[in-house]
Amino acid sequence: MDRSTQLKAMASAPRMQILKLLADPETRFSGQWSADPAAFGVCMTLIAQALGIAQPTASRHLDLLKQAGFITVRRHQKWSYCQRNEVVIADFLDWLGREMRVEAHEDS
């Protein structure tokens, strides 16, 4: 996994907000009628609306999150649906935790 892409993806308030929104799709996107937001993902259009940003801007944020592996995107008819990739997110957080630990021998 390209950690620099993952760090770049996390270094943005809108991208962090997208990940937070997608953590609870049943509550945050309960009005999505085209597919079950928990089972299938959340429509990109609804994500843009939730953030109050233009759809092209949301698409750029979502593309970087996809490149980082933090979300998966699947097409259905004319819409694209996004879901968090919990395995990749957990792996990144574990890696970041290990990287941030100060080892005793490094203090000397």
Rank of each mutant, 00 (worst) to 15 (best):
T45C: 01
L46M: 14
S30D: 05
R28C: 10
W33Y: 07
C43W: 04
M44V: 08
L19R: 03
F29Q: 05
T45K: 13
D36F: 06
A48K: 10
A35K: 15
I53P: 00
L19W: 07
P37V: 06
A54C: 01
T27S: 13
A50W: 03
I53T: 09
A38Y: 03
I47P: 06
L21F: 15
V42G: 02
A50F: 06
T27C: 00
P25N: 06
P25A: 07
S30V: 03
L46N: 08
G31F: 06
D36N: 15
A54Y: 07
S30A: 15
A39E: 15
L22Y: 10
L21P: 01
E26Y: 00
G52V: 12
A23N: 07
V42A: 01
A23P: 00
L21E: 01
R28T: 13
Q32C: 04
G41E: 11
I53S: 02
A48P: 07
M44Y: 05
R28K: 14
A48M: 08
F40L: 08
G41K: 12
A23K: 09
D24L: 08
A35Q: 14
G52K: 11
T27W: 00
L46D: 14
A38C: 01
L46R: 14
D24V: 02
Q49E: 15
F29I: 09
